[in-house]
Structures are given as structure tokens and as C-alpha cells.
Design a protein around this nucleic acid. Sequence first.
DNA 1: GTCTATACCATGATAGAC
DNA 2: GTCTATCATGGTATAGAC
Lengths: 201, 201
Amino acid sequence: MTGPQKLSFKQQQLIVREDAIVDAVNGLLARKGYDLMTMDEVAAEVGIAKASLYKHFPSKEALAAAAMIRLLENTLAHVRSLAVSMPAIARLRAILQWALEVRMQGGLPTLPAQNTSLREALVKNMRYVGKVLDLNELLGDLIEQAKKDGAIRSDLPTEVVLFTIYARSCDPSVDYLKMMGQHSDRQIVDFLLLTCFNGLG
Amino acid sequence: MTGPQKLSFKQQQLIVREDAIVDAVNGLLARKGYDLMTMDEVAAEVGIAKASLYKHFPSKEALAAAAMIRLLENTLAHVRSLAVSMPAIARLRAILQWALEVRMQGGLPTLPAQNTSLREALVKNMRYVGKVLDLNELLGDLIEQAKKDGAIRSDLPTEVVLFTIYARSCDPSVDYLKMMGQHSDRQIVDFLLLTCFNGLG
DNA sequence: GTCTATACCATGATAGAC
DNA sequence: GTCTATCATGGTATAGAC
């Protein structure tokens, strides 16, 4: 009986450690972005040696993928947790609000769209691609429902709406507004939600 | 008489060459971003040796600053060229449209907000800071005018509106929509203008 | 077996000699 | 202006300690 127990315990520990690594990557990606994040920093923040990272994740790209997968899973879980009775538009708004709140606490990692080698690595990652497609589909359905409800302009293609929401969640304005320190986090979130769904006018 | 003429000619050439350098930087910043742009690439694109770059610009940061200064000057010129008879909101929309069109042709460089060493270098650059302040003021006035006209919600702080417009000009959605190839450049610009000023609803 | 220390190697920003 | 160092950084691989 000790055999299986020991193994299970070790596996448990492995998961805990990898979770700590992903935590660190998550924060660093949110604060510095992928290009400026270094493996040294990740290791230092976790409190392990740089080489140990490579025992858990084969590359920097894999680390980024792991962080994004966890974010996608959390997002999917949040989307699915929303009451079905809520109108589609309200759910979309709640999702963006949730993302912005996560971001306000420094927990929303973002990846650069221009880094081709990173993108190539991500596209090859089945788990990652699968989650992205799942989320796109889930949100796409909500957007189309909102269009039917007359809550979203029907002359906007669904993908335009989708990208607009995504873009707003990683909008650099947030950083600048936060840096200025004129408004509370709550206010900033409200402003972004307002400009996203209602526009400037 | 040959003395001054010769000098002037050399100066002329200098300017032409530096302009070519800034052209290359402009394109590379637009395509790859600051972190992934290398001095080797810049040199290769201009057709000179890497070390020669340093005869013209003291550092990579200075190159980025030069490109941004030229962009800011072009933007300021465009803003000032707009007819005073146009309503403020129409001018704001025209400015964003212009920026998006420039971007569509790969001519809109962007800088990462997270790179602290770059930001520090820019803040020390008086020419750059001056232009930024000029543009902020010019656009800020337009925004406040548009608010008085009832064309922009008066409950939105001016800086929120300003950042929202800036953010939309370097929105990653553009790249994704372009990559998908479903819409023409003109349509993409229209979609972004619409979602920015009128919102999704 | 898992972590650490260290070595390796490419890249990329600068600097100095022609 | 070019060519050729220099020097730091950072991603990756290996070898040995608990």
C-alpha cells in the first residue's frame, strides 16, 4: 500500500510545483510580456534553479502555452458558470468585466501577436488550440444570440465583435490609466466596459 | 563658394540617409515590434553596416524615438490640416481613420508599454516628450469640444477617451482580421471606427 | 529521481581600428 | 563609411549532489 501512496504523493507534489511555476509565469507575462520575461526570472520567482524548469517544461514557449492554457480554462469555467437566464449581452459584458478584474490584480498574461516562433509553437500545441477553439465557439454563440436579441449591431461580423472584446481585455489603456492614479480600479473597469459596449458617443 | 555648397550637399545626403534609416525602423517596428527588431535587420534593410547605424543614432532606443517622433510630427500635421469647420467628433474620427489607414500600409510603428528601459529613454528625450504633449493637448481640446457638442459622453474623463482612441489605433484585432482575409482593408477600418465611436450595441 | 551548479552557444548591442 | 572585436544576456544542455 505504501507504493501507490508514495507515488500519488509525489505526483501531488509535482502538480503543486508546476502550478507554482505557472503562477510565476502568469505574473511575469502579465507584467513584462513574453519577450522580456526570462527563464532566470521565472526560476528566481519560483525559488528553484533555472535548469529545474526544463525538467518540467521543455522550453520557454511551452511555459507560455501552459500559462495561457490555464487562463483559457479559467475563462471557460467562468463563462460556463454564468446563469443561462442572463441575456447574452449581459453575459458578454460580465466576461469582459471578469477579465479586466483579473487583469487589475496582475493575473492576465498576454502574448505578443508578432512573435512568429511563439505563434508557431502555440499552433502546434493541441491542448492550447483546442481551448482557444472552445472559447471562440462559446463566445461566438453568445455574440450571435446577442445580435438576434438586438443588443449587438447585426452589421458587425461576429469575429469583429469577438476580437474587439479580446482586444479590450488586454488594452494598454488600462496600464496608463492605472499609472495616472486618478481613478480607482473599479472605475477604470467601468470606463472600459462602457466604451467597449456603448462607444464614446 | 564651393565650400559651403559642398557642406550643404553633404548635409543633404546625411538627412536622406537618416531618413532611409528611420523608414526602415518604422517598418520593422510596425511589423515586429521593438523587442524583436534587431540592429542587424535595420542595417540590412537600409543596406549599410550595423556599426554605421551608430554613426547616426547612438542607440536602439534613439532609433525608436526617431521613428516615433516622425510619426508624431506626421500626426500633428494631419490633425492641423483638418478643416476647422469640421465638428470636433468628425475630426477625431478622421484622425483615427488616418492612423488606421497608415497602419494598414504597414507604416504605424508601436512601442511596448512594458519595456521600462525604453520608456525611461523616451522620457528623457525632450523632442519626443514635447511632441507627445503637443498631440495630447491638441486631441484633448478636440475631445472636450466634442463633449460640449454632446457628441461624446460627458461622464467619460478626457484621458479615458484619449487612451481609447490611441489604443484602437494599435489594436491587435487589425492584424487578426487582416490575417483571416475575410474583409478588405477599408472594411476593417470601418469596423474599428464603428466599434470605437458607436460601441458594439 | 529531483534539484543545483555550471558550461555552452547563439544572439544582439556597442566600441574601436582602419 | 566598413570591418572586426567585445561584452552582456539569455535560452538550452550536461554532470554531479542529496
